[in-house]
C-alpha cells in the first residue's frame, strides 16, 4: 500500500485553481521527485499534504490519505509530526542549535534532559551535522552557514521521528558541496523514511529520486520511474522541460 495517496485533489486560492485533479501515490522508503516550472503547484501540493495550506486560506476538494487514512480525520498536530516539511529558505528558530532541535519534541511530550541530549545527538548525527556543531550546540543557530542551517532544519524534522519528509526546493540557495551533502543525507535516510522532494533542479531529481513527477500549471503531466522519465518520457511537454526547451 502506498504511504501517501492523493485522490482527485483540487486546490483553489479564491478564484485561482492551483492544482487540478491530481492523482498520485508515494511509495514507502522511496524518494519521489517533483519537478516543474514555477507556479506549477508543487509547493501547494506539499503544503496541502501537511495542511499548512489552511493558513493561506485555500480550499481543497478530493482526498489525501496517509497510510489509508484521510488526513482531515487525523489530529492536525499528529499529522504534522508524522509528515515533516523542510522549506526552501532554512527557517532556523531564534535561539541556540540545541533549542532548535528540542523545540519540536518538547511540544509533544515531557522529556528529561538526558532524553533531549540523546534526541539532539541522534538527529544531528543522522543529518550529518554532528561533527561540525558538536562543540557549539549552545551557539545561536543563526551563526551557521546556509548549508548547515538547512541540515539543522532536516535534523530538527528528524528529531520529531516523522514518517514522511517533504522538502520544498531544499537546495535552492546552496552551493554544490552543501547540496551534495544534503543529497547524500537523503539517500542514507531513505531506508527509514519516505521522501517527497520538490526541486527546480531537474538534475537533482535525476540524481536522487526513485520516481519523478512532472507538474505543469497545476496539472500532473507525467509520473514514472526516474530513469524512464528522464530517458523516454511519454509526454512531449515532459521531454521539452527536461531538455531545457522551456521553463
Amino acid at each position: 500500500m502506498a504511504k501517501i495517496s492523493i485522490r482527485n485533489l483540487n486546490l483553489f486560492y479564491k478564484n485561482f485553481q492551483a492544482l487540478k485533479n491530481i492523482n498520485l501515490d508515494v511509495t514507502e522508503n522511496e524518494i519521489l521527485g517533483i519537478i516543474g516550472p514555477a507556479n506549477s503547484g508543487k509547493s501547494s501540493l506539499l503544503r496541502a499534504i501537511n495542511r499548512l495550506i489552511e493558513l493561506d486560506g485555500a480550499t481543497i476538494t478530493g482526498e489525501i490519505l496517509l497510510d489509508g487514512k484521510n488526513i482531515m480525520e487525523l489530529p492536525i498536530n499528529d499529522l504534522r509530526r508524522r509528515i515533516g516539511l523542510i522549506f526552501a529558505i532554512p527557517i532556523v528558530l531564534p535561539g541556540s542549535i540545541y533549542k532548535n532541535l528540542t523545540y519540536g519534541p518538547k511540544l509533544h511530550k515531557k522529556l528529561s534532559r538526558r532524553e533531549l541530549d540523546d534526541i539532539v545527538y541522534r538527529a544531528l548525527n543522522a543529518a550529518n551535522l554532528w561533527d561540525e556543531v558538536k562543540d557549539r550546540l549552545k551557539d545561536s543557530a543563526a551563526t551557521l552557514s546556509g548549508g548547515q542551517q538547512q541540515r539543522l532544519c532536516i535534523a530538527r524534522t528528524l528529531a520529531m521521528e516523522p514518517e514522511v519528509i517533504m522538502m520544498d526546493e531544499p537546495c535552492s540557495g546552496l552551493d554544490p558541496i552543501s547540496t551534495a551533502k544534503i543529497e547524500a543525507t537523503m539517500l542514507e535516510l531513505k531506508k527509514r523514511y519516505t521522501f517527497i522532494l520538490v526541486t527546480n533542479n531537474t538534475k537533482q531529481a535525476a540524481r536522487v529520486a526513485d520516481k519523478t513527477a512532472f507538474f505543469l500549471s497545476g496539472e500532473l503531466i507525467e509520473i514514472d520511474r526516474t530513469e524512464k522519465l528522464f530517458t523516454s518520457p511519454r509526454e512531449k511537454r515532459t521531454n521539452d522541460y527536461i531538455s531545457g526547451r522551456f521553463g
Binding site: L52, L55, G84, F87, I91, P94, Y103, K106
Partner: peptide
Amino acid sequence: KTYREGSFALGATKWQTVVMLLIPA
C-alpha cells in the same frame, strides 16, 4: 511569518507557538 510556519510544520499548536516561540522572539 516563516517562524510561525516553521513551528506549525513541527506540529505546534497556535498556543504553543505563541508561548514557546513568538513571545520569546
